[in-house]
């Protein structure tokens, strides 16, 4: 089981995009809902808080949402995200791209890269809660269904990313 020495090049973005669009379409046709990611973390956090402090969980507008049937541990998006990890690993394995590493620009120290990764994750969680979804649940799914919120989120998030990218030029150069 040795991976090929040179990882294969990534697929054409338009081909990969159309394939992703067909998966999203299949989701609409099969279960009448789109794809997502951030909701899996929200439901898992809701389930954890409900175990430790049920009152806190029930009082939170975010957590309470996941506590009804079938419960936070059987959330659709959590199962979907497990699938994402399996599919990503499979694709990378087939292309010789599985590699344990800290991906970063040479000028960015590993510890700093990990701290930024964590901090950025915290910010995205708060943003996704307010927006009721992230790049997949709002921008992609909402966008394909012509949702006003999806397009609003897509436009604002992209614009903000460009502004912050110019402020963080030193980090990513």
């Amino acid at each position: 089981m040795s991976a090929p020495r040179t990882p294969r090049a990534y697929a054409d973005p338009y081909v990969a995009g159309v394939a992703l669009g067909l998966v999203l379409l299949a989701a609409f046709v099969l279960v009448g809902r789109g794809l997502g990611a951030s909701g899996a973390f929200a439901s898992t956090a809701a389930g954890t808080v409900a175990l430790v402090a049920p009152d806190q969980a029930a009082a939170s507008p975010l957590f309470a949402h996941y506590l009804g049937e079938p419960g936070p541990w059987l959330e659709w998006l959590s199962v979907e995200l497990i699938g994402v990890a399996i599919g990503a690993w499979l694709s990378a394995k087939l292309a010789g791209r599985v590699r344990v590493e800290i991906e970063r620009p040479e000028t960015l120290a590993p510890a700093r890269r990990l701290a930024l990764a964590f901090g950025g994750g915290v910010m995205m969680a708060a943003g996704a809660v307010l927006a009721r979804g992230c790049t997949s649940g709002q921008a992609l799914t909402g966008g394909a269904l012509l949702g006003v919120g999806g397009w609003l989120f897509l436009g604002v998030a992209f614009a903000a990313a460009y502004v912050f990218a110019s402020l963080l030029r030193k980090v990513w150069s």
Binding site: L35, A37, S38, F41, V84, E103, L116, A117, G119, G120, G121, V122, M123, M124, A125, A126, G127, A128, V129, L130, A131, R132, C134, T135, S136, Q138, G147, V148, G149, L152, F153, L154, G155, V156, A157, F158, A159, A160, A161, Y162, V163, F164, A165, L168, W172
Partner: peptide, 25 residues
């Protein structure tokens, strides 16, 4: 759609995306 929260959430998310380098998916 929640116009106000999605405006604020979009800014926070876009900033977090650049800090983290990746989105949740």
């Amino acid at each position: 759609t929640f116009v106000g929260p999605q405006l604020a959430g979009g800014v926070l998310f876009g900033a977090g995306l650049i800090v983290a380098g990746l989105c949740p998916g």
